[in-house]
């Protein structure tokens, strides 16, 4: 009789400290946690080829952007500034006035960016951001026109269709060195 009772008692585990243990773990994760997800500009680099082949591309299809060591911007041979790049890129890609020095269709447009080794990273990122922003705005405009929704909310295959019509082509030339 007595023995049986003892066994039954020992099966019980005191769960009173469970909350304390959980709190301890909770506080640990609270301290080590970093919820703020890092954000950045997504870029796909071209694969490495030992000797780059130079392709012959019609000059009207290339928007050449150059940034020198003093962080001055040159667009198609004319001096400009970083903040004007977005509008210029958009106009260049779509070519609304059918100009002869701009691509006949968006699929053949290429944005070429060349910087100096002494260009500051901040200006380079600003320029890249504006070009990317130009494409994003064009995609968004097309998405609204075709599907009536924002580009970001579209499913993948529709995004792909838009990207096929306005492909993102940013070419980065070897930096100059002065």
């Amino acid at each position: 009789m007595f023995k049986q009772k003892k066994q039954r008692e020992s099966k019980e585990i005191n769960a009173g400290s469970m909350a304390d243990i959980a709190f301890l773990l909770l506080i640990f994760f609270l301290v080590t946690t970093t919820i703020n997800a890092e954000k950045g500009i997504r870029v796909k680099l071209p694969p490495f080829v030992p000797e780059p082949v130079s392709e012959d591309i019609n000059d009207r299809n290339v928007l050449s952007i150059k940034i020198n060591k003093l962080n001055q911007v040159l667009v198609e041979g004319k001096s400009s500034n970083v903040m004007a790049l977005r509008e210029m890129t958009k106009e260049f890609i779509m070519n609304p006035d059918n100009r002869q020095d701009m691509p006949s269709q968006p699929t053949s447009a290429i944005v070429s960016i060349q910087n100096d080794r002494a260009t500051s990273y901040e200006v380079y990122i600003q320029a890249y951001n504006e070009i990317k922003g130009a494409y994003n705005e064009l995609w968004d405009e097309m998405a609204r026109e075709k599907y009536g929704h924002e580009y970001e909310t579209l499913p993948k295959d529709m995004k792909q269709k838009i990207q096929d019509q306005i492909p993102l082509v940013i070419s980065e030339a070897e930096p100059t060195e002065y």
Binding site: E38, G40, R42, V43, L45, F48, S120, Y121, Y128, E177
Partner: peptide
Amino acid sequence: VDKGVTMGVVTDVKLEMRKAERLKVHYIA
């Protein structure tokens, strides 16, 4: 990358990444 860094270093790192076939890049900003 610190915004004051010159592009020379960044270009070299980018070339190394292309050699290592790490082509997906995020410029954190």
